[in-house]
């Protein structure tokens, strides 16, 4: 019993403090842990008891805020839903999310990602707006099933860390923003897919994707961003060949 309470595990954490460090380097910490302890709790215990300067993002502790994504033994995961018991005996390598610039320790730059999700018109654009008195925009369960999983995205960016093509081309719109785009394009109440078309063309649109598919495996919410990206390749190709037939191009 006493032994069980005194399990220890070694964590190698990639640290980078811009004021002191030329480049990131691994620092070893050993923590005492219990069966139900998550990687996030281990980081918190290090910050509390060993090194107050360790920086990482977190908020909800229950895999819904999307703040604590990081590379754990080379795989993008949420620190709050990854448990030390599954990583024992260690040592465990913890690094900031791959493919993003490091601000400090485990904190990465999110500005580009935020710009991308802002750029895709992330709201329902109805064909005709109607007054409140006219009632709701109705939707059948089947119409909802067509987009519903794409609305589960928590913007944790694990899919971007899993995507080697985003690593190669940081301007690639990427899996997360495409999942959000498809969430609206696929919504029967929305009529904005024409406006969103320009964002999916070219290498910075969907065509950087080579269907590696690891974005969907990394997703903690089963959003399947690879599906969102790849079905929009069809949309982009159709538009490329058929845009000459569109009415507004013949006015």
């Amino acid at each position: 019993m006493a032994d069980r309470d005194r399990l220890t595990i070694e964590l190698w954490i990639l640290r980078y403090r811009p004021a002191q460090d030329e480049e990131p380097h691994f620092v070893s910490y050993t923590v005492t842990y219990t069966e139900e302890m998550s990687v996030l709790e281990a980081l918190q215990s290090i910050k509390d008891e060993q090194d107050g300067s360790l920086s990482f993002r977190w908020s909800c502790r229950m895999a819904i805020c999307g703040s604590c994504g990081m590379m754990i033994d080379g795989t993008p995961k949420l620190a709050c839903s990854t448990f030390l018991r599954d990583l024992a005996p260690g040592p465990v390598k913890i690094a900031p999310l791959e493919n993003f610039p490091i601000e400090r320790d485990l904190v990465v730059t999110v500005a580009d990602f935020v710009k991308k999700i802002e750029s895709i018109y992330p709201f329902i654009m109805p064909k005709e707006t109607k007054p409140v008195e006219a009632g709701e925009y109705l939707q059948t369960p089947a119409q909802m099933a067509a987009y519903e999983p794409f609305s589960d995205c928590i913007n944790c960016m694990l899919c971007y860390a899993a995507c080697p093509q985003f690593g190669a081309n940081p301007d690639f719109i990427g899996p997360g923003a495409m999942a959000l785009l498809q969430r609206y394009n696929g919504d029967s109440r929305d009529a904005g897919s024409r406006e969103r078309l320009d964002l999916i063309h070219g290498e910075d649109g969907v065509w950087s994707c080579t269907a590696v598919g690891l974005c969907s495996e990394a997703c903690p919410k089963l959003v399947d961003p690879a599906n969102a990206v790849n079905q929009n390749k069809t949309n982009s190709a159709f538009d490329f060949f058929l845009r000459g037939l569109r009415k507004e191009n013949h006015s």
Binding site: Y16, A19, I102, P164, G167, A168, V212, L214
Partner: peptide, 24 residues
């Protein structure tokens, strides 16, 4: 004092050979 100096890690040219992407 805060000092912003984001560090960009370069992607390995052999990323496709790593175990993560072996299946692909």
């Amino acid at each position: 004092m805060s000092e912003r100096r984001p560090y960009v890690r370069r992607q390995s040219r052999l990323w496709w050979a790593s175990r993560t992407y072996r299946g692909y």
